[in-house]
Amino acid sequence: MTSVTSSTPVLTPAGRRDSRAARRAPGRPRTARYALWFVAPFVVLFVGVYVAPICYAIYQSLFRIERDPLGLTPPTEVLDPLFNYAAVLQDAAFVASLGRVLLFGAVQVPLMLGFALALALLIDSASARGKGFFRLASFAPYAVPTVVSALMWSFLYSPTNSPINRLLEPAGITVDFLGADLTLWSVANVVTWGWTGYNMIIIYAALQGIPGEVLEAARLDGASPWRTAWHVKVPLVRPAILLTAVFSIIGSAQLYNEPFVLSSSTGTIGPQYTPLMAAQSSITAANYPYAAAQSVVLALGVAVLSVLFFRLTSRRSS
């Protein structure tokens, strides 16, 4: 303890006045040592639960399970680096789940973000009253665990006694929410319901950050509220919109909770409905190397998609 105390006052009085320069100055080994203590717990845990699983998954995916056709000896694992990856790419159910999630994301993400952006602009507009209430109302679903909101919607979608259909009865409409045609979009609705408010708040906060002078200038130039919204506000909050887009794309790729919960209520959602569900069912089947390969392929897919998205959007802006 004493040694620690004596070694701390490393700054000269001059350094105190110019602390910023002093902090940037290279070669302050003493504080560097303390900093390592501060970051150590995080780094250790991060390596343990982020880095190690990735490495372990990659390692596992390189093995092939060899089963004795007669089942007389326990299965053995044989190194065969490409075996699982080749199998994954030829796995019709897995490829179909990838396609399903791509379709889901391509439709749901733009719809949800358009909705969120419109809401944020409306709440931000001069014409809105009760802003606080509307912000809260759209954000409320975020407080509901996705599993619970999926349970709740599974009741609302119920093929036998859906309350929504009860309300639509007078109009003579019955919707088969969990029928083959609509299931994917019913799942999309659960996701949209849960996350629109979250994205709206992010975009809304960015709108609030637009300097008043900019809007005043637009008004003095005679721009209508609609023009101001589209040509001034939207371009200025573009970074926030891109951020929500990336989060939503990643979210679609890991779609799991909603379809999994709804699968108890309908036969139209199979055990390999999404890539993550497919990997999960490989685990259930005790084919760990294959599950690992599926996880790696999915993670790579997400990475490629994110990079592509950034490339596309940054090219357009430059």
Partner: peptide
């Protein structure tokens, strides 16, 4: 603090914000 690996650490943290934990649940 200024310490070796500071920038790398923060870059990795930013990267991890974008990579969902869920993908690593199975491994």
């Amino acid at each position: 603090y200024e310490f070796p690996g500071r920038r790398t650490l923060f870059a990795v943290v930013l990267g991890a914000v974008l990579v969902p934990k869920v993908l690593f649940t199975l491994p």
